[in-house]
Design a protein around this nucleic acid. Sequence first.
DNA 1: ACGGATTTGTGCGTATGTATA
DNA 2: CTATACATACGCACAAATCCG
Lengths: 275, 275
Amino acid sequence: MDSRARWQVVYDDLREAIEQGKYAPGDQLPPERELVERYGVARSTIRNAFTRLEQAGLVSAGAGSVGRTVRSSLEISFNATKFEVGEYQDDVVRGVDQWANDVEHQGWEARQQVTVTQRAAPAQVAKWLDVESKTRLYRRRRIRSVRRPGAIEWTPAMIADSWFPEDIATRQVNGVAPLLEERDITMPGGIIASLGIRQVKFIDELRSRMPRDEEAELLLLPKGTPVGEHARIGIDDQGRRVRVLVSVFAGDRQFVRYELAVNQSALSGNRGESS
Amino acid sequence: MDSRARWQVVYDDLREAIEQGKYAPGDQLPPERELVERYGVARSTIRNAFTRLEQAGLVSAGAGSVGRTVRSSLEISFNATKFEVGEYQDDVVRGVDQWANDVEHQGWEARQQVTVTQRAAPAQVAKWLDVESKTRLYRRRRIRSVRRPGAIEWTPAMIADSWFPEDIATRQVNGVAPLLEERDITMPGGIIASLGIRQVKFIDELRSRMPRDEEAELLLLPKGTPVGEHARIGIDDQGRRVRVLVSVFAGDRQFVRYELAVNQSALSGNRGESS
DNA sequence: ACGGATTTGTGCGTATGTATA
DNA sequence: CTATACATACGCACAAATCCG
């Protein structure tokens, strides 16, 4: 009758039940033992179905009496056009940067932890900055976390790594090199501008990929959760690539937003759009 | 000595070998049977390790003599600022749209298959278009594929679904409704403009998520491959949301690119950027 | 066109370890 | 401490896909 594999029958049933809301986000799913009885199959078959539900991002697991539960998504947006490019009004007095500002407008509390290290450029970073691979660079890492006001637990939401060539990272203002300070810093116009660098253009690249092991650990990612990678390359008025900001965020917690005004003259001169 | 689980020893060894290039993209990995002997563990333990390598996107599998192979990435970029917004010059005579144009500049051949259906708005689409859920809409789907010149096989790269309200989808030019035509259409200024609609603003949302079953099938995604979802909402001069273009692409084949000019006046008036 | 060899896919049963409430 | 539930691990058997001669 049913040509589907046994694990797939279980998979389809559970998936349908979840999508129809019979199990709400956070609900506990039946334990393996119970499904073994209900379907009359081996435990490994049930586990196969669950493994795939985890891969599909619908279910997460924890040993003990938590069992398997339906995943929920937080859906925080991050506006990449307002960020740096546009009209954001930040609060230097409160020491809040633009990401935090954006997130707080959506009803979250935000914080970040900063670490600065010197290290050889990974291949991809070298390509972005247009330098030799393994050039010594400075990496300013910010682990950004959010929580609902009143909540106790912080949820890590983003790893934001800025990479700088040595001469830029070590530039000083008033006797200190702000990019090397391991704390949350805000400066009028942004740190980079305060160092006398005029960024005139950004190139953004956005990718969807599976996390590296380190990222999965830092972001507390359940198995099978993809990440978004947002790389912003800053180019100054000399055409030099002065830094790249690589933001890695959990796909189930955050998305990126752009707002673009249509260039009417370009559009009318344009030809052939097959929307 | 080694507190790692047995499967993890195998996982770490293989992962390191792949990352160090001992197995190049496309290379075949040792079969399960051989690793069972080498490590002296059960086959299910080896399979556990491989399952996680597949989840991490490093390895893909196929029964028979193909065995397990190291995955490669194609890395096609897709410029979201030039697309519709910017200065692209397309070729109406050749009937090439902007996506194809972009891809062909990177040395690929491109084609797309178009299907148009009428259907109830899914919840997410309804939110994007700001209409009631289940409103009848038209969906214009384009399956976009690429290949290297000279190659035989087409690789599906993107599912591009445009959703329109009924009154817009059925609008006619010269007696035909171009949005309902199931073929590749290009028009001067784009189809939408030719229908008398002036889009003045786009809102783009980008997400990283696991594919739905249908998407995995259409894009021939190996297990554990995430997708990028790029939604472009078009807003006309009345403030109406006239369409949403939802592009779903394989994370291992394509990424999105934006080029942004920095608004210097906004930036200098801006305060507090903690790059 | 077919058959055999290889390799992964599916499935069973069982046992023990580990995390959680 | 204990019951529950998932994690890891062993071994076995047969099915299905693929490639090659």
